[in-house]
Computed example of a mutant assay.
Amino acid sequence: MQTTYHNETPVPFAIACAVGQFLLTILILKFGFSLAPPEAYGKVKLLAFASTIVYPLVLAHAFGLWKRLALGLGRIRPEPVFLASLSTAALFLPWGLRSADGGKILSDFTIQLFNAFGEELLFRGVIFALLLSLPVWRAIVLNGLLFGAMHLIHGFMDTDWKTACWKMVVTSIAGMMFTAVRYRSGSLWLCVVLHMVLNLCMMYSKVQDAAASTVFLVERAANVIELALAAWVVFGARRAASAPAAA
């Protein structure tokens, strides 16, 4: 019998979903690297990567959330908040793009597509569907924080906790913007596209060859835009909620 407890207590369930993916990924990588020979590490990473897609699909089925994942193609519309969010990726383009052979570009595109799909399916799909009963600002902030916390995995895997904590902060901010796009557009696919495009622009931008101060300013400018867009959606939702109903 399908339970509805997740509708009554969405926050604990949302946190549990994020923690579950975090622990599953750690488990696969830690045990895989300890048991497999070095030449098989790529397969271990691929298994961990696959889990980010399979796990949220299992959750969606278990919680009966398929209709609330916003996967319908008819929802794909160029909402202003989505178009504005692309400016975060555009910030990395004026410095030019790194060259790469066609095979490398195709490989990176494919990896980032599936990476974005898996992360968005969990956070802006399953977890956001659980949080829809909350006030918009709480759903956006909590979703972003859970998304950022997932990046603490770098601390466990690389033992570089300073970098991991910083990644958590900046990805939490990006996660809030992704959630705002999901809320306003009603489309998970737009979040996938935005996530993938932003990752690829950051990967291929030559800004990383510039002075450290320039890199810092560009990245912080992106964070400011991300926060501003999340705030725009939150205040817009609050105004809509407080507006008197039409007679």
Rank of each mutant, 00 (worst) to 15 (best):
L113K: 02
D209F: 13
L93F: 10
T88H: 00
F123W: 08
E120S: 05
K43D: 03
A139K: 03
H151P: 01
A50S: 14
T9Q: 14
L65D: 11
R68E: 13
V181F: 12
W137C: 01
A228W: 15
H154T: 11
C191I: 01
K43N: 05
K30T: 06
Q112L: 08
F147G: 05
F13W: 14
S34K: 05
M168G: 06
A16H: 03
H151T: 01
I153A: 02
A70C: 13
I76A: 07
A149W: 10
S213K: 10
T159A: 13
L217R: 08
T214P: 04
F123Y: 06
A211R: 11
V141F: 03
M168N: 06
A210H: 10
L83S: 15
P94K: 10
P38D: 09
A230L: 14
S99T: 11
S87Q: 11
R124V: 00
H154K: 11
A70V: 06
I76Q: 08
G74K: 15
G42C: 02
M157I: 14
V141C: 05
W232I: 00
Q21M: 10
E120Y: 02
L65P: 02
W161P: 13
V192G: 00
R184D: 07
I53W: 08
A116I: 03
L121H: 03
S133I: 06
L71W: 14
H6T: 01
L132P: 00
L152K: 10
I225D: 14
A139E: 03
R77V: 08
I105S: 03
S85N: 08
S99M: 10
N115I: 05
G186V: 07
R239Q: 12
Y183G: 00
L91E: 10
G102M: 08
A60H: 06
V54S: 03
I53D: 01
P80G: 15
G96Y: 09
V207F: 11
A50F: 13
R239H: 11
A149F: 12
Q21H: 07
K30V: 09
L29K: 00
F82E: 03
S242W: 06
R220E: 08
F22I: 08
L27A: 05
D160P: 07
P10H: 09
L47C: 05
M196F: 05
N143A: 05
F156N: 02
A40S: 06
A89V: 05
L71K: 15
Y55F: 13
A62Y: 07
T110R: 15
L65G: 01
A246S: 15
G32Q: 03
V234A: 09
W137N: 01
Q2N: 07
Q208T: 14
E79Q: 15
A16T: 03
V19P: 05
Q2F: 07
M1E: 08
R184Q: 14
I111A: 12
A231G: 10
G186D: 09
L142F: 02
I140M: 01
A211I: 03
R182K: 04
A230S: 14
A243H: 11
L122M: 06
S99A: 11
A222L: 11
V170Y: 13
I26V: 08
Q112C: 06
R220N: 11
A211H: 12
N7H: 12
A70T: 00
T9D: 12
T179G: 05
S34D: 09
P56E: 10
F235M: 12
V218Y: 05
M202W: 02
I225R: 14
Q112E: 06
E226C: 13
G32K: 04
L57R: 11
T163P: 00
